[in-house]
Amino acid sequence: MNRVLESVAQLFGRAPHKPEKHEIPIPVQVMYEEKKKTKVDQAYLEKLHEEHRGNHKWRNRRWVTLLVVNLLFVVSYQFDVQLVEGALTASRALGFHMADLNSALQVMLAFKHVVLNLVIGTLTVFVLWFLLGGRTFCSWVCPYHLIAEWAEGIHLWLRDKGVALDVTFHRGTRTLFWVMFALLAYATGYTVFEFISPTGILSRALIYGPTLALLWVGMLLLFEIFVSRRAWCRYICPIGLTYGLVGVLSPFRVSYSPKDCAHEGDCRKACLVPHVLDVTIKGRATDMRLPIGADCTRCGLCVDICPTDSLKYEFVGLHQAHPAPEPPPRAESA
């Protein structure tokens, strides 16, 4: 199946496609066969794990970036330095118009009229996040993502103690939300989604001071802690889907190479959107180098945790994550 279509289908909520044997190219099959024959060197693997323990390189970089971006807004306003004016929904960075794509979409649908500034702002942000990977916005900029990440830590701890539930929903629910909020904006003339968007609420609260609306964000976090892991980002947030679509063909992504992968699944346990990492299950990869799908937020938790460096960032054309696969060891004769 076409990789791009598969990536988009997963974004909309379809379960990852499990490749039939005939869909897996011969070199990849050979590689899997080799793995079956070779016994895993447990001591070596343990050593790799030991080396990766406590590796939070990308997480730390991401947290710093997220905090700096959000604090830039705060500092700009509080000290009137005018670096980034506005909030995450729309802003002016060094004079350049920027508009959050989902907020802009809601306004366009509700208002049914687009002024030039909004077109410029939307295009700027579209190009920016196309280059940087679409949902990269989620994990590297969205303030709710960071707080939800911390809440997720509490959730996992409580879940393991048997205190918190672990309810899952169909991932297609997010698509349903996206469509419903688009229709509602168009039909009612109100930006209905903005009323419950924790991204907007948090961004404004940081910049302009706390509001009652933070209670709603608190409720979302309690739901995620006690009922359903990362529910907002996984099943609800239309912003995530919008940026996901922007990043479908993005050059910046995480790349997977099954060659050295021990298929232990640590990456999937750490991941916000583990379905994108189903290719790391033994027998699922259809190439020796695979880009991870568009629903990936490029958060880098998998890159940090992978003991065999099978998951790495890449920027197509600038930086290749994994060396080009060697030509197949045996020539297939017809």
Binding site: G86, R92, V107
Partner: peptide
């Protein structure tokens, strides 16, 4: 209400 993007600029 339809057109405000709630950015506070």
């Amino acid at each position: 209400l339809a057109s405000c993007i709630k950015c506070g600029q």
